[in-house]
Simulated assay, not measured.
Amino acid sequence: MKNKYEIQETDYGVTWINVLQKNSRGETIKICITECKNRGGKHALPVLWYQAGYTKKIFKTYLCVDTYVYDSEGECRGDYNPTVLPSGIALDFTWLFENTPDNKQKLIDECLRRFEAASGPSATELNTEEIRKFAKENGLELFEKLPDGWKITSKFAPRGSVRIAKGSFVMRADDGKLIANPEYREALLIQGRN
Rank of each mutant, 00 (worst) to 15 (best):
K4N: 12
E6W: 03
I7F: 01
I7Y: 00
T10S: 15
Y12S: 15
V14C: 12
T15D: 10
T15N: 04
T15C: 09
T15F: 06
K22H: 10
S24W: 00
S24A: 15
E27N: 09
E27Y: 00
T28H: 06
K30I: 08
I33Y: 02
I33N: 06
I33P: 01
T34R: 13
C36A: 11
C36G: 07
N38Q: 01
G40M: 07
K42V: 14
A44Q: 06
A44M: 03
L45W: 05
L48N: 04
K56G: 08
K56H: 03
F59M: 08
L63F: 04
L63H: 01
D66P: 03
T67A: 03
V69K: 04
V69G: 03
Y70R: 15
Y70H: 12
D71M: 08
S72T: 07
V84W: 05
P86R: 10
I89Y: 13
A90L: 14
D92M: 06
D92I: 05
T94K: 14
T94L: 06
W95G: 05
P101G: 06
N103F: 01
E110L: 02
C111A: 08
R113Q: 12
R114F: 00
R114N: 10
E116W: 02
A118C: 01
S119V: 10
G120N: 01
G120M: 09
P121N: 15
T124L: 11
T124S: 12
I131C: 03
I131T: 06
R132E: 08
R132D: 00
K136T: 06
K136I: 07
G139N: 14
E141H: 10
F143L: 04
E144Q: 11
E144W: 00
K145M: 12
G149R: 12
S154A: 15
K155R: 09
K155F: 10
K155H: 13
S161Q: 08
S161L: 05
V162E: 10
V162W: 02
R163I: 05
K166W: 01
G167N: 13
F169L: 14
F169H: 10
V170Q: 15
A173I: 12
A173W: 13
A173F: 11
G176H: 05
K177L: 09
I179C: 12
E183S: 13
A187P: 04
L188D: 02
I190P: 04
N194M: 11
